[in-house]
């Protein structure tokens, strides 16, 4: 059976953290619930799992590709037009530095922007379960559970002190 979201709203961050503990005790996987907030809380404030990311890979790969392209471009240009300038070797690093640096930065920026779009799963036109009271400081505990489990999850959220429990209509 497909999982559907259920949202518990809390006006107290401690109660939201208790709900997280309650869900864990009830056997709900940590991957299946998340805390919705209007500002970033310190990591681990709700006892949630540690979030890991691989975003640093994108600028690194982009930078390597950009640098490689720039070095190829400058080296091949110098070999194609072998003009001796200022008595320096045909292929010398200082004249390549400016374009190499810029190529590195352009590659890193391009891949970072693409990486952000990919990691944010954009464009995302699907509407999720939300409550505007979260913008007023309420904490949302969003649980993805099979529909048969929704009543049990709602009980856990209510016991922790949820002021409202919403299901997707």
């Amino acid at each position: 059976m497909a999982k559907r979201p259920i949202l518990g709203l809390f006006n107290d961050a401690n109660a939201a953290a208790d709900a997280g503990d309650g869900l864990k005790s009830a056997g709900v996987s940590e991957k299946d619930y998340d805390f919705l907030t209007d500002a970033p809380y310190p990591e681990g404030a709700f006892g949630e799992r540690e979030e890991k990311h691989r975003l640093y890979i994108y600028p690194f790969v982009g930078a390597v590709l950009g640098l490689t392209s720039a070095l190829l471009l400058t080296t091949m240009s110098q070999m194609a037009y072998p003009l001796v300038t200022g008595g320096k070797p045909i292929i010398s690093l200082p004249p390549m530095a400016v374009i190499s640096y810029e190529g590195t930065m352009l590659g890193a920026i391009l891949f970072t922007v693409l990486g952000i779009i990919f990691e944010s799963r954009l464009p995302n036109l699907k509407k999720g379960l939300y409550d505007t009271r979260i913008t007023e400081g309420y904490i949302g505990v969003l649980v993805n559970a099979e529909e048969t489990q929704h009543d049990r999850v709602a009980d856990v959220l209510n016991q922790a002190g949820a002021v409202d429990v919403k299901r997707q209509s």
Binding site: D34, H53, I116
Partner: peptide, 24 residues
């Protein structure tokens, strides 16, 4: 901003993205 709900994952990525873009 249609994709944004303020999940822990989103805040975590936003922080990392701002740091990376800022440095670049």
């Amino acid at each position: 901003s249609g994709h944004w709900y303020g999940t822990g994952r989103q805040w975590n990525r936003q922080k990392a993205n701002l740091a990376i873009l800022g440095a670049l």
